[in-house]
């Protein structure tokens, strides 16, 4: 086993898991996706050309893994609209502030397509083109989904956002 690959895992696992958790809304499934992501990354490591950052490359694999898992396990607990467990969000640095958890919970209740785009663009800072490529949708669809997600989020968080 490559020590170097374990180092890559240690450096990026929290980011990959965070992405998978927000896309799936389920800690157990996010763990499965994270594991499959790193296994897939190990197999594809020789194709990593260094043109993008390692984290970006892993994000792409993670998104693809989540999408594959959804297709493979359509009846599983991948929720169309759900709510993240607060206990699952063990964020480093004691970031479990009430406002953060409200946002995470609202994000977890979004429809899947809107949530995917909001996570990739809103949280992880990808462009619409990048998010569209990762999700296999058109960039225009990504923009429309983001608008939808923001509107739904604002409706859910209206009071909290104003209070924040």
């Amino acid at each position: 086993m490559d020590v170097e690959f374990e180092a890559i895992y240690r450096s990026h696992v929290d980011q990959v898991y965070g992405l998978c958790l927000r896309m799936t809304g389920q800690p157990a499934l996010a763990e499965d996706c994270t594991q499959e992501c790193f296994i897939a990354a190990w197999r594809a490591l020789r194709t990593f050309e260094g043109r993008s950052r390692m984290s970006t490359w892993l994000y792409r694999i993670a998104v693809n893994t989540v999408l594959t898992l959804r297709r493979r396990r359509p009846g599983d607990a991948l929720r169309e609209a759900g709510e993240l467990d607060e206990a699952a969000l063990q964020m480093p640095g004691g970031a479990e502030a009430a406002g953060t958890l409200d946002i995470e919970a609202a994000m977890g209740r979004l429809p899947q397509g809107a949530r995917d785009v909001l996570v990739l663009v809103g949280v992880y800072g990808h462009s619409h083109e990048e998010a569209a490529t990762m999700l296999g949708i058109a960039a225009g669809t990504s923009k429309a989904q983001l608008h939808r997600a923001r509107r739904l989020m604002a409706q859910q968080l209206g009071i909290a956002m104003e209070a924040a």
Partner: peptide, 12 residues
């Protein structure tokens, strides 16, 4: 608020 969310979440 979204952009300020931590990108890293530790698995359980």
């Amino acid at each position: 608020a979204l952009a300020s969310l931590p990108r890293e979440v530790r698995p359980g």
